[in-house]
Design a protein around this nucleic acid. Structure first.
Length: 623
DNA sequence: CTAGGGTTAG
């Protein structure tokens, strides 16, 4: 097939470079043509002289000579290839100089994250107007290409085209995305210069901009200088105050705001703000007293409970919501799954997973990491791994969840393997990752590796060591019996050691039967956590084991003297048929079902008999 | 073109 000299050469080079494996394919298929022009950029770069040659090879889109039909096609096109073929058609028919159509094209590009197409299409135009520039700038921002959007803005000014009110929200957002306060301030000056000082859309974006640098005062200044305010501006300002924890100002603005202007968003921001400062009662009050609720109100309230560790309430609010016939979305689900993880309610968690699958919810990174965590925390590591491998996209949260899941189940090597894999996929770990990694090393007794990772976090990833990381490291060394090394680490810390660290030391002393160092640790703990009786009890146990009864008595009496409350025992929950049951070591809560204790006695007896770990089927046959 | 809700550790 002959496309004509120039174009033939163009295609041939294209082929050699990118698509030699396609050469053997059927040349007669017109569809195949688009394989050569894999990008609209290729098309645009075609020398103008060759455009006429396109006449023969670009097919007509059925009935597409009406602009409206092409624009319709932008909206319905579902993949990049389709977008390219529409653009090819536009080039052929010189629609690529039509401002309105390129405007639509740029928007379509942003849905496929193809900002370079939009930029190239703009470049190709002889006389782009403000609408085209705005569309391309917006496309860049929505595809997280803030630098490009600023470049286009500059190009626009050079072309003597004045920005409009549509230009600035995107430009301001770009400045926030690249954390450039100074540039944003310069843009703010231009906003004044071009006369958008009281434009609500523009000013709303400025309020948001200053708050992203924690410049609440400047945010408020923008708000106060406005002549007219709409619901968006009010809500933005309330939200800024609420997010910064200043609920007094937030609520004051809420009261000042004309009542009919209040929207769902206004109420929801306030509820969320109260939940953040742990004032769950106020959040609840607003939620119960708002005139009506939308999905986000419900999700906010569900999340408010979760933020305040009231997971049971979180789930019951979710139930109430569904009973009222409100359909949850991905965001609601991610929150609810997280609540299930904290409660250990595998039943409900599974149901929600099923619901998500059935209703074709997008399995995104939020839901993904929540599910991974939920299954791992509920003891179903296999499911957890399955979800992890099935995720189409994985971010840091997903990796952290699976690394933590494996570590907490005692799969130290596997957990570290995951960590290696994560680094291979260029996902940058954070401080949380290293907590799990160090925990994995502790479980596996991997002292050398632990030390290596402890170095690596600061050397390779510039992650500052938190007190938690020292806690993990001290725990690792103490559990491995290396008390001297642990003490050396503590002495070299730039942070003041906390109770967790001395607790780890004390625990190490118990294993090593080191009473002297144990005494040092207990003395520190008496100051750091005077109310935590667990440490005293541990030390008393150590003393008793060494028959130091006089010291035992002394500590016991000083505990009484300082009125140290006995620590309530740690407990577990299990859910059976939708009902949650609480257990703790040597509890007697379950009098109603004597069999539990009978079985426990038998198990305990058997355990003593052969002093071995129960195998699963052995356990089953025993039942 | 502007506002409100999401995941991991402790």
């Amino acid at each position: 097939m002959n496309f004509g000299g120039g174009l033939n050469r163009f295609i041939a080079t294209s082929c050699r470079h990118h698509f030699s494996h396609h050469l053997r394919s059927d040349f007669s298929s017109l569809h195949f043509l688009y394989c050569y022009f894999t990008t609209a950029t290729d098309l645009i770069r075609l020398p103008t002289a060759h455009l006429s040659e396109l006449e023969d090879i670009v097919p007509n889109l059925p009935g597409a000579f009406e602009k409206g039909i092409i624009i319709e096609k932008f909206k319905t096109c579902s993949n990049l290839r389709q977008l390219e073929s529409i653009y090819a058609f536009m080039v052929k028919n010189s629609y690529n100089q039509d401002c309105f159509m390129i405007n639509q094209f740029a928007s379509a590009c942003s849905t496929f994250s193809q900002t370079d197409y939009a930029i190239q299409a703009l470049t190709q135009m002889n006389d782009p107007n403000i609408f085209v520039y705005n569309a391309v700038i917006r496309a860049c921002v929505s595809c997280f290409a803030p630098i490009q959007s600023l470049q286009i803005y500059l190009r626009m000014l050079r072309a003597q085209i004045s920005p409009s009110s549509y230009t600035f929200p995107s430009i301001i957002k770009s400045c926030a995305l690249i954390s450039q306060l100074r540039i944003g301030e310069a843009i703010n000056a231009q906003i004044w210069k071009f006369g958008f000082k009281s434009h609500v859309f523009v000013q709303t974006s400025l309020i948001d901009f200053y708050s992203s640098f924690s410049k609440i005062f400047e945010s408020r200044q923008v708000f106060d200088e406005m002549i007219k305010r709409d619901a968006f501006v009010w809500t933005s300002m309330i939200s800024v105050h609420a997010k910064s924890g200043n609920m007094v100002s937030a609520h004051k603005l809420f009261d000042e705001m004309p009542e009919p202007e209040r929207t769902f968003a206004t109420w929801n921001s306030l509820i969320d703000g109260y939940a953040r400062i742990k004032d769950i009662k106020s959040a609840e009050f607003l939620f119960n007293n708002m005139p009506s609720k939308d999905l986000i109100s419900w999700t906010t309230m569900i999340n408010s409970y979760s933020q305040n560790k009231l997971y049971q309430e979180s789930l019951s609010t979710f139930n109430q919501m569904t009973k009222q016939g409100i359909t949850p979305d991905e965001i609601t689900m991610a929150t609810v799954i997280s609540a299930c993880a904290h409660l250990g309610t595998l039943d409900i968690g599974k149901k929600i997973h099923l619901y998500i699958a059935k209703n074709r919810f997008n399995l995104d990174v939020y839901i993904g990491s929540a599910l991974i965590d939920m299954y791992a925390k509920c003891g179903n590591l296999d499911q957890s791994l399955l979800v992890f491998y099935k995720l189409p996209e994985k971010n840091l949260f997903c990796w952290n969840s699976i690394i933590e899941g494996l570590a907490s189940h005692g799969y130290a090597k596997e957990s570290l393997k995951m960590f290696t894999q994560m680094k291979k996929e260029y996902i940058k770990p954070n401080g949380i990752t290293f907590i799990s990694v160090l925990t994995a090393c502790t479980h596996g007794g991997l002292v050398k590796e632990g030390r290596m990772y402890f170095q690596s976090m600061i050397q390779d990833f510039l992650i500052p060591r938190g007190i938690e990381h020292y806690g993990c490291m001290v725990d690792l060394l103490c559990k491995a019996g290396m008390l001297e090394d642990a003490m050396e680490l503590i002495k070299g810390m730039e942070l003041e050691p906390n109770g967790v660290i001395w607790g780890a030391v004390l625990n190490g002393c118990r294993i090593q039967k080191n009473l002297d160092l144990g005494r040092v640790a207990v003395e520190k703990l008496m100051v750091l956590e005077p109310d935590n009786s667990g440490y005293y009890s541990l030390f008393v146990k150590m003393l008793a084991e060494e028959n130091r009864w006089s010291e035992v008595a002394r500590i016991r009496s000083s505990m009484k003297e300082f009125r140290v409350e006995k620590k309530s025992p740690g407990s577990s929950w299990i859910e059976i048929e939708g009902k949650s049951h609480q257990f703790s070591a040597s509890d007697k809560y379950h009098e109603c079902s004597k069999e539990i204790y009978l079985l426990l006695d038998r198990l305990y007896g058997k355990q003593l008999l052969d002093a071995c770990v129960f195998e699963y089927d052995e356990y089953i046959s025993f039942l």
